[in-house]
Amino acid sequence: MNKSFVIAKKEFGSFFDSLVAYILLAAFLGFSGFFTWIQGSDVFMRREADLDVFFSVARWTLFFFIPALTMKMIAEEKKTGTIEMLLTKAVTDRDVVIGKYLGCLLLVGVALLFTIPYYVSIAWLGKIDHGATITGYIGLLLMASAYIAIGLFASSITNNQIVAFLLALLIGIFFHLLFDFLAGGTSGWLSDLFQTLSLTNHYDSISRGVVDTKDLIYFGSITAIGLFLAEYFISKR
């Protein structure tokens, strides 16, 4: 576990070395700031003291950005052979996967921290629902955690970054959008199944202000399965 933190720290640092982190932060804050404060349906227009616009923009931005962060994390190490150097150090396959996961989650966390001023400003401008805002942030982090795990899995089965990126998006779009559609188009147990699988569904329920164990288990399972599969594919060599 200790080694995971060493790896996480390095991964976090290398996002900044490669400028990826700056691009992500600039784009994330740019998009979410623009839609929250400036564009048509912003807080001033709606005259409602909440961060709903921010959350929905952030949800989509993270959906696209996380695969871009995770795509190289394992695929590139496989391609350049550094994975061999890394895995022959005194670490386990699991240390490596968890380290990379934590490094990426930390970057998303930092991106979200930079939006705290939005929260503070809106709380100053009107009466904000603190509960829903805090759970909204928790929801974003849980969602990020699930997508990072999916992204790492996609990165672990190929040594081509583009393939990893597209695959992560493809898997992601099911959770983000398609399961929800499918739930609407079916009925009975099938509809229930799709409803349960839909990430949007769980995210919405959390961001309404209630953190249900069911939702935590959902995000926890996707994260665990993604990381487990990533570890499995790393161990196959």
């Binding site: 290398s14 350049t80 550094t82 061999e84 005194a90």
Partner: peptide, 19 residues
């Protein structure tokens, strides 16, 4: 897990070039 006892230089000498 005896990796700690071993120093290994892989064939193509892979390194993190950006570091």
């Amino acid at each position: 897990n005896l990796k700690r006892q071993i120093g290994y230089l892989p064939e193509s000498n892979p390194l993190y070039y950006e570091m």
